[in-house]
């Protein structure tokens, strides 16, 4: 450690940590609250879709959401752009 370290600008790594944790914890909690079959369902859906379209591994989202008194299984599939074949990252 140099004696002039304190002159360097500090990186805000704590903010990065917090942001990363916020996302991963929210994601893991939503998976945890739902029934056990959700991850498997998601994986199998992905396999089926990939037979026909080349999509990213994170293209399929399976969530259990509340709609009044009902639980709604929300499945969303992001398809790639038609012309370049690359995945469309915008959601």
């Amino acid at each position: 450690m140099s004696i002039f370290d304190f002159l360097k600008p500090k990186k805000n790594t704590a903010s990065i940590a917090k942001e990363r944790l916020r996302i991963i914890v929210a994601q893991e909690r939503s998976a945890r609250g739902g029934p056990d079959y959700l991850p498997l369902l998601r994986r199998e859906l992905l396999e089926v879709i990939r037979k026909y379209v080349s999509v990213d591994v994170d293209a399929v989202k399976v969530d259990l959401i509340k709609d009044g008194d009902n639980d709604v299984l929300d499945i969303s599939v992001a398809l790639p752009d038609r012309n370049d074949g690359e995945s469309n990252s915008s959601r």
Partner: peptide
Amino acid sequence: MRPQAVTRVKP
């Protein structure tokens, strides 16, 4: 354009 197929299934 962002083509996106959204399916909603009510269990």
